[in-house]
Design a protein around this nucleic acid. Sequence first.
RNA 1: GGGCGAUUAACUCAGUGGCUAGAGUGCCUCCCUUACAAGGAGGAGGUCGGGGGUUCAAAUCCCUCAUCGCCCACCA
Length: 892
Amino acid sequence: MELPTRYTPADHEQSIYELWEESGGFQPTPDPTGEGRRFTVVIPPPNVTGALHMGHALNGTVQDIVIRHRRMCGYETLWVPGTDHAGIATQAVVEKRLFQEEGKKREDLGREGFLSEVFKWKEEYGARILTQFRRLGASCDWTRTRFTMEEDMSRAVRVSFERLWQKGLIYRGMRLVNWDCVLETAVSDDEIENVERKGKLWYIKYPLKARPGEFLTVATTRPETMLGDTGVAVHPDDERYKELVGTTCVLPFVDREIPILADDTVDAGKGSGAVKITPGHDPADYERGARHKLPTIIILEKDGKLNQEGGPFAGLSRELARKEVLAKLEELDLLEKIEDIVHNVPLSDRSKSVIEPLVSEQWFVKMEPLARPAIEAARSGRLQFRPARWEKVYLQWLENVQDWCISRQLWWGHRIPVWYDEDETPIASSEPLEIGSPHPDTGKPIVRQDEDVLDTWASSWLWPFGTLGWPQETKDLHSYYPTQFLSTGRDIIYLWVARMVMAGYEFMDQLPEEERCPFAICNIHATVLDAKGRRMSKSLGNGIDPVDMIEQFGADAVRYSLILLTKEGQDTKLAPEKIDQGYRFGNKVWNAARFVLMNLDGERLEGASSSAERLEDRWILSRLRETISSTQLALEEYRFNDAAMGLYAFVWNDFCDWYLELAKPRFSNPDDPTGPAVRGILSRVLGDILGLLHPFTPYMTEILWKARAEALGQGEVPMLMNSAFPTGDRLEADVEAERDMERIQDVVRAVRQVRMLTQIGERKPIEATISAPKSEDLRALEQHKPAVCAMAHLESYEVAADVARPPGTVSAVSGSLQIFVRLGEEVDLEDLRTVFEKRLGKMDKALQGIDKKLSNPRFVENADPELVEADRARRAELELEMGMLRQNLEGF
RNA sequence: GGGCGAUUAACUCAGUGGCUAGAGUGCCUCCCUUACAAGGAGGAGGUCGGGGGUUCAAAUCCCUCAUCGCCCACCA
């Protein structure tokens, strides 16, 4: 196979992906060890409205790394893909499009007609994001792709609802909910966002009933809601108002007499110290109203217009009503003053419109009983968060959990499986009830099904087992539940993660307690920000499209860059040029592989690891062993960044910069007897590098794997994806080789430094004399002359335990080693002197630090003896090296 | 109001009690050396946000302040 000098991802990615998919490797295959190890991940189902963004790309990469790694380790792996119908979001998108393109509202089409429009839309766009996941290289089992609105999932939702109903955990009630006036539905507390905005605080005078001409002033940011007031509250200890408590005032415009009462939730320091109570339209007032048994008056229609309770303002929109109310108050001289303030305004996540708290009839789930086992799951360690600090966030929400408003006044979603008879007696049923059939409890004919649909999370919380077939006892459910790893963003810890855990414990009760938690690890990935540290968003237009990046740099580069940039859970600022780092690394691997392969020539190379003939061979194999084991450990512990950084350093610094360079003269010389050995080792190390990198950069490694097999004359080999992850089984740690190699690197670097700083020239052949007072250094340098000479471009050198500086030479110093290099006539030593002086300065500082420690008896007594010994040795070394540096500086 | 995270080289980030505090990018010098110039070699550059404390020893642990960001909170 001819490999171009640059890696060109676009030429390979699609065909490689097809090969993977056709191989069946994305589908689970039994653990070959017979131990039955399984590893399951369910994808956080992206919204069908969505397109891949950087958060998805990062999370997709993380999941794919885990899955590919476990697959290569022999686990029976399954990664379940799918999409979420995302009730509100999708309905809003389709409604908007319908209105813009055809000028129609959903009511014009009717429920059936509208739903078929949404399904059409879903068919057209729903798969797009999954296609983009494929481009990323995601090794999902696409034969198991699920959608939260498909029939099986709908049934799962109905069954879950019925079960909660039977346990008495579902109730219907008039409650204050967050109302989205644009989408005309209730939304949950978790779907609103408080945004700080400039506003005004209006001070309104309410006439006192018993004292004509006197007023009680209340302050409000929402004057129009006064039409729904049914009381005024002051703090019980507030001297200003004490005597008014128990009396009444009269609400302007509607002439309602409302009581003035004392409530200790009132903050006397805020506003006027008196707060109007609007139980129908304010959460705090709802509580106060209930406490004091005040009536609740609802003044808004579903679309935000005032109803007949608005009196003279009936029919106006809430915005207009506010203006009119204020104008009228002004006219009546009831407006005392106006203050400018900054306050929080609740906005709907979906429509971005201001939420109106509104009392309405909704369905709720009692959450406290469901929360208990979910809390216990985290406390007991059965569920672990990565990073661990997110556990606190999870627990805090669960411990203060509010009942869940699960009804939505939408059409796109799972219709609430509740039917009513002619007396409006409700009954939940997992099997749809026919109109006219008898009500299971009352026997009276069923007349209608509830109009509302369920919150979208009422289906997504079933995802980890619903996708595996629940409520049926399928083989998949048996085999793959519970899952091992879930990775998602922090913004849905409450919305989704906590609810999935609750659902797992609640609905998987056929399993023993310890197997119900839907996943063992919940990984909260980093947030990808723009270059300025802002969230990427459509409105800011600062998003970086992963698909663009994949097209420009390749999927491997996007994956590797994202992992290099995101130390576990730490947010990252991303700019397109940062993807370049991943590409450059890929290109480095590509070229290293190309170089190795062009020198293999179809030789059969076996037993590479046992034929290490030279120091560098032993060294690279020892380094390889260390890299394999640290990568394996990091991946087992979900430390992706550590793994990627470690591989980066091993491949680039150890393998390319040193081993390949040392290998060059050996196989370019046909007479070199170590040629076969070096080729064997190169092929071995390359093979393992490809295996280690495969979870991170699957495409490129797969191509190179095939090329390697060809170069080795192996013919058809299994794809890398389906091959075993490298193990260091046949490798041993070689401490001596690593130590010797370090000395050699020291010498080479020292010579290079002298060459550069004195402008001898990097490659000019020179001779050297080395003083190596330590016996092991002396041995190493005598033994490994070819390596030193090759890398430092020395013709030859002499080495002895103690050598005086020969005349006409300058010396490079490294540790206890001194390398004397013969210089030409006119050489400028200034740069070298500067560097040596600077180094001396640093070393002197270090020496002082050590002296301070060693002269302190408490250190010598308390510290680890090994540490003290190390410091003594270090001190001796420093002194020696400094002495040599000084001597040299004198000679300059 | 409460909680969490961040603050280390010009930039983006590693480093959680003990080597002369590291990497990538950028910068300076040299090199097209037959894998890669999207490369190689060498170099410059940091009082680790401020202050206090614990310790023989602090970028690292504790307290406090500052700045930035995120989340939660009845937000009149």
